[in-house]
Simulated scan of single mutants.
Amino acid sequence: MQKTRVLTGITTTGTPHLGNYVGAIKPAIAASQDPNVQSYYFLADLHALIKCQDPRRVQESRREIAATWLALGLDTDNAIFYRQSDIPEIPELTWMLSCVCAKGLMNRAHAYKASVADNEAAGQPDPDKGVTMGLFGYPVLMAADILMFNANKVPVGRDQIQHIEMARDMGGRFNHLFKGQYFTLPEAVVDEKTQVLGGLDGRKMSKSYDNTIPLFVSEKKLLKLVRKIKTNSLEPGEPKDPDTCTLFQIYSAFATPEETRAMRARYLEGIGWGDAKNELFEYLNAYLREPRERYQALMEDPGHIESVLQKGAERARAEAAPMMDKLRHAVGLGSFI
């Protein structure tokens, strides 16, 4: 039976936090252990250059993210784990797709339209002020990431569905122009059950809001951050609504169903906010203790991380190189012999 191909890119501009783990890392690691799925997970470091021109931040983020996924149990024997920048065939395919992609399609990309709208709202005479070709052509690079490995499914948030549709458009156009089934047209997979965690201020946990709880901070820092989570002014003994509480939401994302039910009962009984925060800290600290130790060991051994990523790149290029050779022949760029 042919394995379903699932591909996920991880942007390398930030430090992984609890929201990343619950929404993306945990389900991806589970998929990496499924023998019926061929998973591709890559550090999207070329994408990172679109928004981040701090080389130290990009370099550190790549290492932190790789160490995080490995510490949490990514199965690199089954899944293919690599850096985007280690696959030179990706930018080559990006150019080929750029040559069949209509500019009008890129004009409709959400990120580009948002930048133009911001300029217009600010009264800028040039609607493209600050827009780089990296930002404008970002969906083409994303299409190359997906189409190179003929991914069947791409797990994304709702805001990324448009990019999968664009990848389908480019892949279909290429197939039509060069008269062959070179690319599998991917399907966007949106998990409606994926949890979106609240952050310290109650809004969605996001580095954009500076309200995150990094996964592997020290115990002391973790306690400090948990205590900063915003709560209301209800006193101990007063019943509290668990469904509107960030503390309970984070707790339930990690706890078992039985533990969650028990905590819900304590909320209705009027647990004090100090006790609720202490309970959350203790649970998170115990849950993350072993992976935190593995993470710290990995961060102190960059050579091991590098070797894992190089092995992943070799496996990825074993597919990408012959694919590009076929595509070069398709467009007339093949060798003469």
Rank of each mutant, 00 (worst) to 15 (best):
M1W: 05
Q2D: 15
V6P: 01
G9C: 06
T11S: 13
T11Q: 15
T13P: 09
P16S: 09
P16C: 08
H17T: 04
H17V: 01
H17G: 03
G19Q: 12
N20R: 07
Y21E: 07
V22C: 06
G23L: 00
A24Q: 06
I25N: 04
P27F: 01
I29T: 06
A31P: 04
A31Q: 13
S32F: 00
S39P: 01
F42N: 05
L43S: 02
L49M: 11
I50A: 10
C52T: 14
D54S: 12
R56L: 15
V58S: 06
Q59L: 11
E60I: 01
R62Q: 13
T68A: 04
L74G: 00
D77K: 08
I80Q: 00
F81Q: 00
I87L: 02
I90P: 09
P91G: 11
L93V: 10
T94K: 07
W95A: 06
S98W: 02
C99D: 05
V100L: 02
C101S: 14
G104M: 07
M106R: 11
N107A: 14
A109C: 02
H110F: 05
K113W: 11
G123D: 01
D126Y: 03
D126L: 15
P127K: 05
T132H: 03
G137S: 11
A144E: 07
L147Y: 05
L147H: 10
M148T: 13
N150Q: 07
A151Y: 03
V154G: 12
P155F: 07
G157T: 05
I161L: 13
E165S: 09
E165V: 12
R168A: 09
M170R: 01
G172R: 05
N175T: 11
F178Y: 15
K179F: 13
Q181R: 14
Y182K: 06
T184L: 06
T184N: 09
A188H: 11
V190Y: 10
D191V: 00
D191C: 03
K193M: 11
T194G: 07
V196E: 05
L200V: 14
D201V: 02
G202K: 08
M205Q: 05
S206I: 00
Y209H: 13
T212F: 08
F216L: 13
V217C: 15
V217G: 12
S218D: 13
K220R: 15
K220G: 10
K221G: 14
L222F: 06
L222N: 15
K224D: 14
T231I: 05
S233F: 11
P239E: 09
D241H: 07
T246K: 03
F248K: 03
Q249F: 02
A253C: 07
A253Q: 01
F254P: 14
A265P: 00
L268Y: 08
I271L: 03
D275K: 07
N278Q: 15
N278L: 09
L280R: 05
F281T: 12
Y283M: 13
L288C: 08
R289A: 13
E290T: 09
R292C: 05
R294F: 03
Q296D: 14
A297D: 11
L309D: 04
Q310N: 11
Q310E: 14
G312N: 01
R315P: 00
A318F: 00
A320V: 07
M323R: 09
R328V: 12
L333A: 13
I337G: 11
